[in-house]
């Protein structure tokens, strides 16, 4: 299973979304599912760039996409700061305009778009594993 390395910069997001879309399309995922996978991958990579690396230059993140018969697993690895993924509060997406939280939306979208999401921190770095089944 090939692993793709990207500089941890927002300019990499386009390429990350393209890799995910190409692999998901080859696995027969619907265009709706492909858009969801691209959005989840983008939000996850954005989090790594912003939080794990805090915008530091020279850092990298790696992306692998593992196709199985009925599901795809996207794994992202970074060597930055651990990010307490599970402590991100669920934003109230029903709140009125003035009470709408400005943060937490990325993690919320990842959880909504993917079937399973697991975040692990090791001494060597952090691993986010996200799986989506075919509908």
């Amino acid at each position: 299973m090939p692993s793709y390395e990207f500089p941890a910069r927002f300019e990499s997001l386009d390429k990350i979304r393209n890799v995910v879309a190409t692999i998901a399309r080859s696995g027969g995922f619907s265009e709706k599912a492909i858009y969801s996978l691209q959005l989840a991958a983008d939000e996850a990579a954005t989090n790594i760039i912003e939080h794990a690396y805090g915008g530091a230059s020279g850092a990298f993140l790696s992306v692998t996409c593992d196709l199985k018969k009925d599901e795809i697993t996207i794994t992202m690895r970074d060597t930055g700061k651990a990010f307490d993924f599970d402590s991100v509060k669920t934003p109230n997406v029903k709140a009125k305009l003035s009470k709408r939280p400005i943060g937490g939306l990325g993690v919320y979208l990842i959880r909504q778009l993917m079937d399973t999401v697991r975040y692990e921190s090791f001494n060597s770095g952090n691993v986010l594993t996200m799986t989506k089944r075919k509908e």
Binding site: L13, R17, L39, L97, S98, R100, I102, L105, L109
Partner: peptide, 19 residues
């Protein structure tokens, strides 16, 4: 073609300001 939550945040900030 595509908008992530970064775009949503810009929309939210603009809506608050305009309203």
């Amino acid at each position: 073609e595509y908008m992530s939550s970064a775009g949503f945040r810009a929309l939210l900030a603009a809506q608050r300001n305009c309203k």
